[in-house]
């Protein structure tokens, strides 16, 4: 059998349709369904939440400008969230540039994999930093407003139990998020890794 001849027949029979202009125009106006686009959207939503919390912390600090403890707490929270914002924004930018395909197929697959792994790692780091800050602020804010100090808050049995509960909750949420990410992206990451290995393998 002549493979080249059969390929030509196959081309004539299977790949000989014409794409209409309307189809092209419709497709280029759609939203991307790629993993990168999905991650970009997710990071975009997280960035909006981070901005919301930064504004909230600044607002609370402004309304309690006479309370040094509140100012300090909001200051630390704002700084933590600012670091998170910069981290997520950089990642978002990287994903935008990864969307544009340049270079070889192997380069494309590698940058795709790198971008996905990096975005998930940054999300994880921010989760570990951001959630505790958010919870501590939410939890101790009321006590501070009533004039309690940090040691007052920590000495109470009720407060300690609540803190332990929150720590357990953060750990559980972290574990659940990890599982969800594995379900959503695990197979895709494995697929990309296999293809990269295949292309790089020295015969």
């Amino acid at each position: 059998m002549d493979i080249n001849k059969q390929w030509q027949k196959l081309e004539q029979a299977n790949f000989n349709q014409t794409i209409k202009k309307e189809e092209i125009m419709k497709a280029i106006q759609l939203e991307s369904t790629s993993t990168i686009a999905e991650l970009k959207k997710r990071l975009g939503q997280k960035i909006n939440w981070v901005i919301f919390f930064i504004l909230l912390f600044i607002g609370v600090a402004a309304f309690n400008y006479t309370n040094t403890l509140i100012i300090a707490l909001m200051g630390v929270s704002t700084l933590t969230y600012l670091v998170g914002y910069i981290m997520l924004k950089q990642e978002h930018r990287k994903l935008v540039s990864t969307e544009l395909i340049d270079g070889t197929v192997l380069d494309g697959l590698k940058s795709n994999l790198k971008a996905i792994k990096s975005a998930l790692a940054k999300e994880r780091i921010f989760g570990l930093l951001g959630f505790p800050v958010m919870m501590i602020v939410g939890f101790s804010f009321n006590s501070f407003l009533k004039g309690s100090t940090i040691s007052d808050v920590l000495e109470s049995q009720y407060n300690l139990t609540t803190i332990i509960f929150f720590v357990a909750l953060v750990l559980f949420l972290g574990f659940a998020a990890e599982k969800m990410n594995k379900m959503a992206f695990g197979e895709h990451i494995t697929k990309l890794e296999t293809q990269i290995r295949e292309l790089e393998r020295i015969s």
């Binding site: 794409i19 189809e23 092209i24 419709k26 497709a27 991307s32 369904t33 544009l100 395909i101």
Partner: peptide
């Protein structure tokens, strides 16, 4: 259908390269 549309979209986005 999805792959077809995604390919056209990525071609359009990447054509600047």
């Amino acid at each position: 259908k999805d792959l077809y549309q995604e390919t056209l979209l990525q071609l359009w986005k990447s054509v600047k390269n």
